[in-house]
Computed example of a mutant assay.
Amino acid sequence: MLTKLPQVLDFYQTDYAIATRWQPFADTQLFMQLVNQTQRPMLHYWTLPQTIILGLRDQRLPNVQAGLDFLHQQGWSYFYRNSGGLGVVSDQGVLNLSLLLPNTFELTISQGYQLLSELIQASWPTLPIETGEIKHSYCPGTYDLSIHGRKIAGIAQRRSRGATAIMLYLSVTGSQQTRGATMAKFYQLSQGQSPDFPLVQPQVMANLSDFLPAASNSTQVQQQINGTLQQHGYQLVGSRLQKLVQQPEFKQQQQSAWQNLASYNQSIL
């Protein structure tokens, strides 16, 4: 699958702040529009500190306010993303990656998941990274990535008429036990029941660095993924997007998208 990507990819990296915590998903919306207009694929790496990113399904929890109160008491920020699925954890030890492709690059949903899975597996070929649902992880899915049965990453997709965003979170460093225990307590207090909501067991979660100490931070991991793409013959271009996001027109669109997501989260601000 990796050999089928267009040979030139734009890439961009962002370290978001809690104060603008829903900006990554506002930007994803804008980047999908941009990819549709330019017909150039892009990679977006990003981090966001100490935040629980909830999915649309989490809104249906019977007692979600009790869960949200717990997150607040524990010092976590939180918000609802404008897409389906369940909650995931973001902090400085988690690297998020979005691969955005124009729809002229035709992929089925399963091929999209496979593409990003293969990129991660190719980046660390000595590790036995497998795909398949880790049932008691948070946000379990068919294309969870795991090592020896412990989940290190999850993948989701967002599709529009013009572009596809394949999005991955990769736990690099930090305490997966704390992350897992936080989500387990959140669903317990929110009265989430299986099979609609996961019965999270923290011991099934792990970091990439647990198996590869050299993966010591998100920057190193990003460089490894970029290097893998370059080894497969891809050219990565960073300067183009750096200039574009500074343009007044983009800033205006970004502010509008941010306000839309802020309105969407008005009930829990």
Score class of each variant (00 low, 15 high):
residue 2 L to H: 06
residue 2 L to Y: 07
residue 4 K to Y: 09
residue 7 Q to V: 14
residue 9 L to W: 08
residue 10 D to C: 07
residue 13 Q to S: 11
residue 17 A to G: 14
residue 19 A to K: 12
residue 25 F to K: 00
residue 29 Q to F: 11
residue 30 L to N: 02
residue 37 Q to L: 14
residue 39 Q to P: 06
residue 39 Q to D: 14
residue 44 H to F: 13
residue 45 Y to W: 15
residue 47 T to S: 10
residue 54 L to A: 09
residue 55 G to H: 03
residue 57 R to W: 10
residue 61 L to Q: 01
residue 62 P to S: 06
residue 62 P to D: 09
residue 62 P to W: 09
residue 63 N to C: 14
residue 65 Q to M: 11
residue 68 L to P: 00
residue 69 D to P: 00
residue 78 Y to F: 15
residue 80 Y to C: 02
residue 92 Q to G: 12
residue 92 Q to C: 07
residue 99 L to S: 05
residue 103 N to I: 03
residue 104 T to E: 15
residue 105 F to W: 12
residue 106 E to M: 11
residue 107 L to A: 08
residue 107 L to I: 10
residue 112 G to E: 02
residue 115 L to R: 06
residue 119 L to A: 04
residue 119 L to H: 03
residue 119 L to T: 03
residue 123 S to T: 15
residue 125 P to K: 11
residue 127 L to V: 07
residue 128 P to R: 03
residue 130 E to Q: 15
residue 132 G to V: 08
residue 135 K to P: 05
residue 136 H to W: 12
residue 138 Y to N: 02
residue 139 C to N: 06
residue 141 G to Q: 02
residue 146 S to R: 00
residue 153 A to S: 14
residue 154 G to I: 03
residue 155 I to N: 04
residue 160 S to P: 06
residue 163 A to R: 01
residue 165 A to M: 13
residue 165 A to V: 03
residue 168 L to Q: 06
residue 169 Y to I: 08
residue 171 S to P: 04
residue 173 T to I: 14
residue 178 T to Q: 10
residue 179 R to F: 05
residue 186 F to T: 05
residue 187 Y to C: 08
residue 188 Q to L: 05
residue 188 Q to A: 09
residue 189 L to W: 04
residue 191 Q to P: 07
residue 191 Q to V: 06
residue 191 Q to R: 11
residue 195 P to S: 07
residue 200 V to Q: 01
residue 203 Q to T: 15
residue 204 V to Y: 01
residue 210 D to I: 10
residue 211 F to I: 10
residue 212 L to G: 04
residue 213 P to Y: 01
residue 218 S to A: 10
residue 221 V to E: 04
residue 221 V to H: 02
residue 223 Q to D: 12
residue 225 I to F: 04
residue 228 T to H: 05
residue 230 Q to P: 05
residue 231 Q to I: 02
residue 235 Q to K: 15
residue 244 L to W: 11
residue 247 Q to G: 07
residue 248 P to F: 13
residue 251 K to L: 12
residue 256 S to K: 12
residue 260 N to I: 10
residue 260 N to R: 12
residue 265 N to F: 07
residue 265 N to H: 02
residue 269 L to G: 14
